[in-house]
């Protein structure tokens, strides 16, 4: 399997606040600060982190909904960092997106048929669109006879299927899934995750999967990148990450995810992080996690740890990286 997407040292900052007259930003949010990763064809790569870590901004940079401030993005061997206009619209055929909110992402004043056909029409493939829409709806488990209905007539899970059908319309190579199940009820969640897995098997899709929920990530991903305050702090294959996370932040994140088993919860050794994520306006110097880390030493405050290979393809940026299981149980 070849490399499909390569993101190299991308940076994105947002200006914050401004004077009344001169539109001069008073500060900048360091939303994404030197993020690099690659995704191979046919795999699922997850970006995980809490709100404000920059995972969604990274997704928007890959989708070219936002322009990078620095860095470079390559897709299928071609640089796409600065594509615009017609060339950018062509790129949309290959990179599609599934949204978090199945209500907000569907235009309430359009029928399902029009919503799913939207990418086809936008790309000038109006001919045969109706037939294709029926196929797509069937593919995601919806009744094609319901194509004339409006989104509000469907349940949350069904609406998410409509969004998935829309994303499939152009037969893309890469689909960016931005928290695709976090707005859904538990029973709907499993249905949609299974659908995403089936589609990947059938169509050979590649996913960039954005999520805050490590238990969801564990079910669908091949490789995982963990983000904290605009940087990737750890990248690993799924088994490596859940078997023995190296970065203290990843460990804390894993440890905070509840396990639906009272016996495990009682015996579990838990790390409860103190304090909250610092403001991305003024991220801490050197290691960004040092203000909340229990392993912190002087070096963490002075020297930025590199995202280095520790073993196999397992990378972590910590001066004191040591493996810890996702669910550690008292002996």
């Amino acid at each position: 399997m070849g490399e499909l997407l390569r993101v190299t040292d991308v940076v994105k900052r947002f200006p914050v606040g401004r004077g009344l007259l001169l539109r001069k930003p008073t500060a900048e949010v360091h939303a994404v600060d030197g993020v690099s990763f690659t995704i191979n064809s046919g795999e699922t790569f997850a970006l995980v982190g809490e709100s404000g870590c920059g995972k969604t901004t990274t997704a928007n940079l890959v989708l070219r909904l936002l322009d990078v401030d620095a860095g470079r993005i390559d897709f299928a061997g071609e640089e796409i960092t600065h594509r615009r206009g017609k060339r950018l619209r062509e790129l949309r055929r290959d990179i599609q997106m599934i949204f978090q909110d199945p209500v907000a992402s569907l235009n309430p004043r359009m029928t399902v048929r029009d919503i799913v056909a939207e990418p086809l029409v936008a790309q000038g493939r109006r001919r045969g669109a109706t037939g294709q829409v029926a196929e797509l709806l069937e593919r995601v488990g919806l009744d094609p006879d319901h194509a004339g209905r409006y989104p509000h007539e469907f349940s949350g899970g069904q609406r998410q299927r409509i969004g998935i059908a829309r994303a499939l319309a152009l037969s893309p190579k890469l689909i960016v899934c931005d928290e695709p199940v976090s707005a859904l009820d538990v029973s709907m969640r499993a249905q949609v995750l299974n659908l995403l897995l089936d589609l990947q098997t059938d169509l050979g899709l590649t996913y960039l999967f954005i999520s805050h929920d490590l238990s969801v990530v564990r079910h669908v991903c091949d490789r995982v990148g963990v983000m904290y305050l605009g940087k990737i702090v750890e990248v690993a294959k799924r088994e490596q990450l859940f078997g023995g996370a190296l970065h203290p932040y990843t460990q804390a994140l894993l440890s905070a995810v509840p396990v639906p088993d009272p016996d495990v919860e009682v015996k579990r050794r838990r790390i409860v992080l103190q304090g909250e994520v610092p403001s991305p306006l003024h991220p801490p110097p050197a290691c960004r996690f040092h203000t909340r880390c229990w392993k912190v030493e002087t070096i963490c405050r002075n020297e930025t740890p590199e995202l280095e290979v520790r073993c196999g393809q397992h990378k972590a940026s910590c001066h004191f990286a040591e493996p810890r299981a996702a669910v550690e149980i008292h002996a």
């Binding site: 909904l65 062509e90 949204f99 936008a122």
Partner: peptide
């Protein structure tokens, strides 16, 4: 700023559309 507008951009729609 609503999400379905982003969705339309991802679909590759022209600004006028």
């Amino acid at each position: 700023e609503r999400q379905f507008v982003t969705a339309a951009r991802v679909a590759g729609g022209r600004s006028s559309r």
